[in-house]
Amino acid sequence: MTVPSRILVVDDDADIRTLLGEYLRRHGFQAEGACDGASMRERLHRAEFDLVVLDLTLPLEDGLDVCRDLRTRSDVPVIMLTARGAPIDRSVGLEIGADDYVAKPFEPRELLARIRAVLRRTTGKASAVRPEATRHIRFAAWTFDPTARHIVNAAGVIVALSGSEFRLLRAFLEHPRQVLSRDRLLALTSGSDVDAFDRSIDLQVSRLRQKLRDDAKAPLLIKTIRSEGYMLACHVTEPA
């Protein structure tokens, strides 16, 4: 990280804005604050930001509207801060284009890890459509819902994924028909779980193949590319 990433913190609570800003600066980011949607738009207009941390419960405007509006004009990654116990908000937040979601009260290190993970996933992807920010994704006979950790098969049966399976599948779906080395997969999947000990990528792939009912001996979906890594071999679509 040669140039520090610029983070905009949008929260109506002045203390949280200030405290979070200080915390992010201590950890090598540049941070600014905005107290509402209007002030956020004004800041974004004046300067480039690498990521927005957006509180869902703003006083004048709904955070979801702010996010939806932001999506129509910018591709800046967004992490939503929201109240716990609101699963509907979560999925709606992600559907309208937030890249991740952290519930209050959060562990500051957890937010830091998520910010870094989102930046890692989104940097260098320019203005390409980011599938993680869109609705359901279809691949082979499966539907992937990025807002819930599960996939749905052709018969409509819901197949739950573990955290590591979810991150691995998301990485593949964001890079369909591209060979991904083990190191690249590790970087794309070492997500927000600060203390999780990582299984080897090979083991994770074999578990994911089992979930996808992909034969390990002759896999059709996740192919092993000898001495290079793995590739998602099927077509990926996003239904309108």
């Binding site: 609570d13 203390d15 949280i16 405290l19 979070l20 915390y23 109240a83 716990r84 209050k104 009260p105 959060f106 562990e107 500051p108």
Partner: peptide
């Protein structure tokens, strides 16, 4: 949630 978040950051 809000006061606890503030406290945690402090």
């Amino acid at each position: 949630q809000t006061p606890v978040t503030r406290l945690r950051l402090r």
